[in-house]
Computed example of a mutant assay.
Amino acid sequence: MKRNPIIPFALIAIVGILAVIVISFVGVNQRDQIANGGESDESAVIEPETIYEASCLGCHGTDLSGGAGPALSAIGSELSLDEIKDIISNGTDGGMPAMSGTLSAEEIAAISEWLSEKK
């Protein structure tokens, strides 16, 4: 009796494809947890300093002193919380891009509150 050499390869391929599908579903569920540094969504704490470092530092400087964008070290004494939130969300004509497409509403609220305390 002669054995078909393709059957073992087909079985290995099917097992491999099933493994990839299972791993993909597991990975999708873990993506948010990994993005939050291992914390679950319910216990995720939004750190405004981290948001600033990732999204604002390039234009406003490491110490809020400005650069391509204006200084933010005393922005809370110049603008209200709502004005800061509006600028971050919608941008300005002078070059500040709208961050509503990049940051979540919770992140915008957190960084706006943090900046409004800079007086």
Rank of each mutant, 00 (worst) to 15 (best):
Val26Phe: 15
Ile84Glu: 04
Ile14Cys: 10
Pro97Phe: 01
Ser104Ile: 01
Glu47Ser: 11
Val15Ser: 11
Lys2Cys: 00
Leu103His: 06
Pro5Gly: 04
Asp63Lys: 04
Ile14Gly: 12
Met1Gln: 05
Asp93Cys: 01
Gly95Gln: 03
Asn29Lys: 15
Ala44Leu: 13
Ile12Thr: 08
Arg3Gly: 03
Ser73Phe: 08
Thr62Glu: 10
Ala54Glu: 15
Glu39Arg: 14
Asn29Arg: 14
Ile12Gly: 04
Tyr52Arg: 11
Glu53Met: 09
Ala71Asp: 07
Ile12Asp: 00
Gly94Gln: 06
Lys118Cys: 03
Ala13Ser: 12
Glu42Ile: 06
Ala71Asn: 05
Ser80Ala: 01
Ile51Pro: 05
Ala110Asp: 00
Leu57Gly: 00
Ser43Pro: 03
Glu53Leu: 12
Ile12Phe: 11
Ile87Met: 12
Gly94Ile: 02
Glu42Ala: 15
Asp41Met: 08
Ala13Leu: 12
Ile108Lys: 09
Ser65Trp: 08
Ala74Tyr: 13
Thr50Arg: 10
Pro5Met: 09
Cys59Gln: 04
Ala10Arg: 13
Ser112Tyr: 14
Thr62Ser: 09
Leu81Glu: 15
Val22Lys: 09
Asp86Pro: 00
Gly95Glu: 01
Arg31Trp: 15
Gly101Ile: 01
Ser80Cys: 01
Ser89Lys: 11
Asn29Thr: 09
Ile46Phe: 08
Met1Asn: 03
Gly66Ala: 04
Arg31Ala: 15
Glu42Met: 05
Leu79Lys: 15
Trp114Glu: 10
